[in-house]
Design a protein around this nucleic acid. Structure first.
Lengths: 212, 212, 212, 212
DNA sequence: TATGAATGAGTGTTCATTCAT
DNA sequence: TATGAATGAACACTCATTCAT
């Protein structure tokens, strides 16, 4: 009787998947310009030319990773992971944020690249800001639905959502590992402290502004 | 009799200074890896080889820019620009933050590079985190002096100062111009809204925690 | 009841044939070195690997096309298309030349490649010159039979046959379409003028030399 | 006493010149697509990167060679090398043709490339046909001045000048060395025979047509 | 016969850096 | 100080060819 193996060894993944994963790691470690296609191939355990069989350029690799990440974030919204909770500052919010961070941390490599390329004046910047724009809109739609939108003025609300909502979270996801290495903290303490700070700042501000 | 002119035209600046300024612009536009020494020379209006007369490598150019920026930030602390104000959430804080942002905006190019290179696993990362560490320590010393240190635990305090204090400010300085281009806001409104958000989040949290 | 169709649609041709035709087009458009096996496969509507099932290399594709063309030219000689006419400068010669050009124009892609590769110092050059040598010998044998061989000296006769006989004809076949595009002439006028010129130059010279 | 050396050793030429010469040789030997920039650098005795210091691409190398050749041909016309002779079929014409061929033979490498690339559908084709068009116009202007223009109809005259005038000459220049190797003739005999044939065909036709 | 996946060896081009003056 | 010329070491990307099925 045959038993279907279900392990997730590297070798079980398709070459295309291994290439994408390796690219995410390499981009995160060296930035887009610093990343070497040779190194991506080595990390993925494939011939370099195979990368160009599946993707038309180094830039397309990044674009596909960005799309996957945007879709994953949208899936979180669609699944109601965030909406259903009590969008306040209590334990529910704490649990929700934990889940949210955990999911994003699976994509931390790509998020790092987003932050690195975010300030450059290159074509990649366009990809990033269209993605950021879409996600911001979802965040604001959610805030409006739950009654916590801080500002009547859409333009101003976007500023707040971006600079004190989205960015601290992305920063945490991107830098928490480096922080742990550099300043010697452990994951649970660091995350707990970040969540405290986020609840005490952005979410508290939101709740206060919404007048609840 | 010859009189030495003292105006500050671009052409009057030393070649060394023009090179550093050009490098900051080029690094900010393209990142460290994406920056081209040819382009720095072109922007500075000097021969490419002259760059290697003054600096031993592209990396040293960046190191010098980082040092200048760290010194400028330290000078702000030394001059008491921050300490002297009423470190709360009122108009004084608002004026102080405005001044602070204005000074940092003069160095926005270098700050952009800091954020870009912050997440990479390269030698540059060491330079950045030693600088960040020093500045964080000054921030915490100041917070302790003024009685607003949020946490007894130094480690935890550092986390809060970094993720909800330093990073939002650096992010604002780095991204505000791109934000204006992408989302079509004007400078005064954007800055006012950011200051509102920063006062309402990080500073409000600090003040609350300090029990005042 | 099923009836086997006998039309000659592209799809009805064997894969091998479609590959050869596509190769001729691609070689003519881009030269041998510029031609891409991927593109040949695309033009032929087959999988790239199938090309290597039928032919052992890109070079063999070209060799087969050359052989086909040489055989077609020999068939013209064997069929007496040229021999039977009055090999002079009158209407018969004009009709003969028209027929000859029409047949060669069907192979214009391969002839273009011959001219492109003719001057290179590559292995392909050997294939071409052995073909050219054989055809020249047939041309001279024909000229001898009809009494129009311009020179007693075989060596000198070969020069004349090549530079003022064979080459102008091959050049016409290879370049007439490009000429039409570039200088905006129509086919009938261009061909008529070329035939005038050829009769007035090479054939007139031949006839004069032969003393008739 | 110091004597200025006047030799023309390879080392006396500028690197830029050596690169162009090497490129002409390599293009002639392998065609544009078959030519290797590495090999050009090796032949020129320079570092490969230096080629890109002087020229922006492999294609620009070819463009510069084409321009030089067109200018050299124009200089022949401007100097009246051709115009001043008795444009007939006698000894003067023979001497003129000899001079003309000698000058062109100095550029035989580039002329070979012209013939190779002439039939391709690539950007290079544009460069070639604009050059050919200009030269043809000069040829026709000359023919008109000397009263030997074969046709009233400019369009038809161009066809004749191209297919029985320009092309046989370019073919001779391009292929005479290969011909000597392949069929074992010596230079003087081959050239004499070609000149005989050219006088007896294109020029005789021209003179007859002009009614002299 | 036919194909999707895979690869070794290039290929033109770039770039930080150095040299000679 | 300043520069035009020069270079070694990559770099992203390509391509003819082969493999497994």
């Amino acid at each position: 009787m045959m038993v279907r193996r279900t392990n997730t060894d590297d070798n079980e993944l398709t070459a295309r998947r291994r290439i994408l994963d390796a690219a995410a790691r390499e981009f995160a470690a060296s930035g887009f310009d610093g990343a070497r296609v040779d190194e991506i191939a080595r990390k993925a355990g494939v011939n370099k030319a195979l990368i160009y069989y599946y993707f038309k350029s180094k830039e397309e690799l990044l674009a596909v990773l960005f799309e996957e990440t945007r879709d994953a974030v949208f899936a979180l919204f669609d699944a109601g992971v965030i909406r259903k909770m009590d969008f306040g500052t209590g334990d529910d919010a704490r649990r929700m944020l934990t889940t949210f961070l955990e999911v994003l941390e699976e994509r931390q490599d790509v998020i790092r690249v987003v932050l690195m390329e975010c300030a450059k004046r290159t074509p990649i910047n366009d990809m990033i800001f269209s993605m950021i724009g879409e996600i911001l809109d979802r965040m604001m739609a959610l805030a409006a639905d739950t009654g916590y939108l801080v500002e009547k003025d859409r333009e101003k609300a976007k500023v707040t959502e971006f600079f004190t909502g989205m960015m601290p979270i992305l920063n945490y996801v991107a830098y928490h590992e480096i922080w742990m290495e550099r300043f010697g903290m452990e994951e649970p303490a660091l995350r707990a402290q970040f969540i405290d700070a986020f609840l005490g700042t952005h979410l508290a501000y939101t709740v206060r502004k919404a007048g609840r």
